[in-house]
Design a protein around this nucleic acid. Sequence first.
RNA 1: GCCCGGGUGGUGGAAUGGCAGACACGAAGGUCUUAGAAGCCUUUGCCGCAAGGUGUGCAGGUUCGAGUCCUGUCCCGGGCACCA
Length: 855
Amino acid sequence: MATSCTEYHFREIEPHWQAYWEANRSFRAELTPGKPKYYVLDMFPYPSGAGLHIGHPEGYTATDILARYQRAKGRNVLHPIGWDAFGLPAEQHAVKTGTHPATNTQANIANFRRQIKALGFSYDWDREIDTTDPRYFRWTQWIFLQLFQRGLAYVDERPVWWCPELRTVLANEEVVDGKSEVGGFPVERRNLRQWVLRITAYAERLLADLKDVDWPDSTKRMQEAWIGRSEGAELLFALPGRPEPLKVFTTRPDTLFGCTYMVLAPEHPLVDALTVPAQRAAVEAYRRAAAAKSDLERTDLAKGKSGVFTGACAVNPINGREVPIWIADYVLLGYGTGAIMAVPAHDDRDHEFAVQYGLPVIPVIAPESGEAKLPYTGAGHLVNSPGYDGLPWEDAKRRITAELAARGVAKATVNYKLRDWLFSRQRYWGEPFPIVWVSEADYARVRAAGIGPLPESPVTYVQDGVRQCALPLPAAALPLELPPVQSYLPSGNGESPLAQLPAWLEIWFNPQTGAALPAAQPCPTEGLWVRARRETNTMPQWAGSCWYYLRFLDPANPEAFASRAALDYWGSPDLYVGGAEHAVLHLLYARFWHKVLFDLGLVPEAEPFRRLFHQGIILGEDGEKMSKSRGNVVNPDTIIQSHGTDTLRLYLMFLGPLEAMKPWNPRGIEGVHRFLQKVWRECLGPDGAVAAKLSPDAAEDPALTRLLHETIRKVGDDIEALRFNTAISQMMIFANALQKAPAARTGSVRAFLQLLAPFAPHLGEELWARLGGTGSVMAAPWPAYDPALLTASEVKLVFQVNGKHRGEQLVPVGTGQEEAVALARGHAKVAPHLEGKELRRVIYVPGKILNLVVG
RNA sequence: GCCCGGGUGGUGGAAUGGCAGACACGAAGGUCUUAGAAGCCUUUGCCGCAAGGUGUGCAGGUUCGAGUCCUGUCCCGGGCACCA
């Protein structure tokens, strides 16, 4: 079965074993009830035109080692791969070339597949998925409908980047320095109709359930910060001469006596009504300036605050005092209520603003001791707050909230930074929404006919003064595929290219069957048909990656996104490895969808990823991030050609801790390559036959046997903890010892090859076969170590005098303290340091250290 | 500014509070060879001929003992960006 090379010809060996695995479907995962499973998942790649980046094989090698190790440990391993293939670059390519984005996407996938196969990963290729395949996105659409029916999707106007010159919506990454990336044209914020998912309904659970997952603490903290829970109160400030009060959110109701002015976000709906005629021009100018600002300009202005007085006042509910209302862009419409009560004595930003505009500063919190330097944001007790003076601030917070609540002008609330998720794009290359828009009257007819399920309250949108209602396609009509278009250019009015297809867009729609006919044709008379306009938005790239780990369980199922049996058996990934750049968005979105599916009883567990690990970034040789412009990009193909896949895999793992950010060093590759060549030479003679010093019953040095068992233990422990660099060190130590040994048992070397095989699987298979191993090395059960062999009869005891290392000696295990002290006194290097001194204390750690404190 | 990482030889890195520098890379010397490559042997933190001293960004502290724990500080990297 092995090749017949006499030397380590990786160019022959690696393709040979890859063909063997493929022909035998060696990595196929079968649902086997009763057999323990292990599901190890990579973050699937976006198949970019640039091909595989060296960061991909880093994470993929790590999971591949785990997958192969767990198979050897007897687990039924699911290790799949697929393509997250919707996305902006493919669309841009289509716009440029006029070819369908699918064509380019499929070419890129073919290239990625070739590259990944050349790396010898043990993926179950029968489970390959592609998010752009209608058989896949049918279920993405189906899950969206579940959200829609539960009232978790709605339509709203949201600001997006709009480029008047290009007549298109731009993504954040397409806007550079306030200009379009293509052409450098000016861009502006413009409100467009968008689908939004109600992720905020899950904020509390997304936060609370973080305690149940084995994730890096830093990632958990980032998610916590992103969700941004804060407890406080909503307070109502009366507006003289107006019926409705001004509502603000504050985390510090205790500082209410220190409120000397109010600030509204420039976009706040009350600004127009509140502005007095004399201030109108100034307010208008300020609002225009704020609206035109790019994010970058706003950031630049972070150093100085700016704002304008509206001329109006509000009444502080605690003391009836009137305070002026300003507008300023340091207050955001999207957080809280878009309005704040400013307490310049105890808030940095308010203080800066007050100083700039000469507004009064009244301290109301005093520290327990010493003088407070304003702004003072620490703990303390209340002052200048009649009726509350002397109270600790936390007590005052509760009391003031309660007392104002009793008067109906306050409500204790919890606020989140988390916003609802903008879930639509005005693009072609994404999943079409399985939604059509109908009139209110037609919606009522459909509802009356009992067709559904429909959301409890209809999702509506007012277009040109007419209310439209969103009607779902029936599940049986899925997938809704992308229609062919003439041009991938946006429509120019803010809608996707799909809006340019009148025959597809304007239809007669049968809500029962999902059937559609162009509206230009006569309306069918049989059954219920309504006049409809299709949704032209498409879903964002996140949609497909929110649930792909579930499709891997049962990728070809036409009846469900996965069968109940598959879900119950495979569950969710036991280990998920990917970059930390997804610490918030992808991982939060996927958790949200998973919890919705869990609530629907469709998945067995409440969290999708029990154990998560982030691989670190590999920097270029120059220590900078790899990028085309810097010219420091490493292509895996090059290394595979020059040194082979096994060397590349081993090197990626030897570079340093998996989670660390580390620079690429081409010279280091030689080191691991030499190691593999050494292993080859120790196994095989120059003629390619088994090396002369190996035999089944060789007189092997017990020290070598012990080292083998130590190596078995350490490599196993390190793999489980994803410490691959130290596992490789240990294998190098064994190989060095093997080289020096005059003889070794073939069985010992075969056991060693089993340890090496997950890291360097091609060489592992080749040498295993040539040393008489039966079948594939990966089918052999993982070697066990003998604990008895690991307990040595003698240990090295280190002698210290006053904490300084002075000597060492081999002593039998179980040597007592008195005996150890006697040995130290008799030690030629130690004795001089004890001479003429009084022994004051003895610290003895058996088998490790004897510290004699003298004086 | 805030949050999170991290500072250990010429380099990547190793080290449950117990011998700092495992394992590699690089370098130097040697061996083999007609010669080279590969391999093999030796050396390789710094100072010192040596004995020995010294050493984990810096300054303190806890401890019999600190790279590791604590306090302060400097530097580097990453993330967030006025969140009331």
